[in-house]
Write a protein that binds this DNA or RNA. Structure first.
Length: 182
DNA sequence: CGTCTTTGACCAGCGC
DNA sequence: GCGCTGGTCAAAGACG
């Protein structure tokens, strides 16, 4: 297994997002991809490169764009058994080129589901932020066409700082440019 | 021992 | 109204 480079909002994909899934205060309209950062992945670290450019085939592009562009309000009233919120938060889809689907963005995620998607031989994984009070969810899906392409969809915004053993992640954060509408 | 993954079942929305 | 699909829960197991 190899590691994975982490990428973030790309110019064409999440450009139209309303809010990034990260509480970063840096606001830049330029599209930059986050360089790889060594994580502490037990899987094995490999030299990653920044080939996370927006490689989006027509099919994928359509998906991510529809989410970012007009998918700001997916009101799929999801009435839970407990009757929580019925409004669906906007989702932001990022396409990344990686061998693995688990993109470590510095947050801790707990996998809570996995379903097979039609048109895709690869299953979609559902993750949720393990922070208390943080309802950020994310789903990772791989393209059956190009297994090298992984689509990560974020739902919600983190309201807490990144919690990762990587102490210098902060430094990395300052380096990365996140698209922030504010 | 605590945390996270796995996996099947369950539920709600939508199309027919 | 029924069946399909996507999304979520929860118990048990795996793993450190």
């Amino acid at each position: 297994m190899e590691n994975y480079p982490m990428l973030f909002p790309l110019s064409s994909t999440a450009a139209t997002s309303s809010a990034p899934p990260f509480p970063s205060s840096n606001n830049m309209a330029s599209s930059h991809i986050f360089n790889n950062f060594h994580g502490n992945n037990p899987n094995g670290y490999l030299g990653l490169k920044t080939e996370v450019h927006a490689a989006r085939p027509p099919e994928v592009q359509n998906v991510s764009q529809s989410e970012s562009l007009g998918g700001s309000e997916n009101e799929v009233k999801l009435g839970k058994k407990k009757g929580e919120k019925k409004v669906r938060k906007p989702r932001y889809a990022f396409q990344t080129r990686s061998q693995v689907d688990i993109l470590d963005d510095g947050y801790r995620w707990r996998k809570y589901g996995q379903k097979a998607v039609k048109n895709n031989k690869f299953p979609r994984s559902y993750y949720r932020c393990t922070h208390q009070g943080c309802n950020v969810k994310k789903q990772v899906q791989r393209l059956s066409k190009d297994e090298g392409i992984v689509v990560t969809t974020y739902e919600g915004v983190h309201t807490h700082a990144i919690e990762k053993p990587t102490d210098n992640f902060e430094h990395i954060l300052s380096q990365m440019q996140i698209y922030t509408p504010f």
